[in-house]
């Protein structure tokens, strides 16, 4: 599909580190890429110019840090696009998309509530879902042993490695073929 190739081109244009074209039928995402934090606003601007909308921002807690996934969808041609940014576990700061998509404000505030990720440029980074008097660190997973590596989670499964430093995020072997899991309760 040409439009997916085009989206891939956009990813490369903003300096993506990893890019992949997963099967929409099994992954629900037609194009995915890891971009440097500072490039996310440029990517959003390019996508906004092509009639894309920001559907969701979800944060994944992993060994490598917080993987922030921005889900975009096009108004002209349906298909979900996942732009990902990896923020370090200590002092996670990511530029805000508020200037491009005003709807990002709330998604970012929510991510700030639950993961402590700070979004530079968000005009109103106050608690959204958590109470205002919530004190202490964000409600993260307790034990660091709980955390899985991004490679184990298969998020970047089958990605093309554009930045060799990110090679460790991609699972070495292809994910097992999708099949009914036989694990049954004994």
């Amino acid at each position: 599909m040409t439009s997916i190739d085009h989206l891939e081109q956009i990813f490369r244009q903003v300096g993506a580190r990893l890019v992949s074209k997963p099967d929409f039928k099994t992954r629900g995402i037609c194009c995915s890429g890891l971009v440097p934090a500072k490039a996310i606003v440029d990517l959003a601007k390019l996508l906004a110019a092509e009639d894309h909308t920001l559907l969701d921002v979800s944060v994944l807690e992993a060994k490598e840090g917080f993987l922030i996934t921005y889900h975009f969808d096009s108004f002209s041609e349906p298909g979900r696009l996942a732009a990902r940014v990896l923020a370090p576990r200590e002092n996670p700061v990511v530029p805000s998309l508020h200037s491009v998509f005003q709807g990002a404000e709330w998604h970012e505030r929510e991510s700030h509530d639950f993961y402590g990720v700070r979004f530079d440029g968000n005009p109103n980074l106050v608690p959204l879902l958590l109470p205002e008097d919530f004190s202490g660190p964000p409600p993260l997973r307790k034990a660091p042993g709980d955390l899985a590596g991004l490679a184990d989670l298969g998020v970047f499964d089958g990605s093309e490695i554009l930045d060799p430093s990110c090679a460790s995020l991609v699972p070495a072997r292809p994910a097992p073929p999708a099949a009914v899991s036989e694990a049954r309760d004994a």
Partner: peptide, 19 residues
């Protein structure tokens, strides 16, 4: 389906989005 997952079912590792 016949072999419907039961209570102790484990999801395979991976990521997906369903809308």
């Amino acid at each position: 389906i016949d072999k419907a997952p039961k209570a102790g079912w484990k999801l395979p590792a991976g990521e997906t989005y369903f809308a």
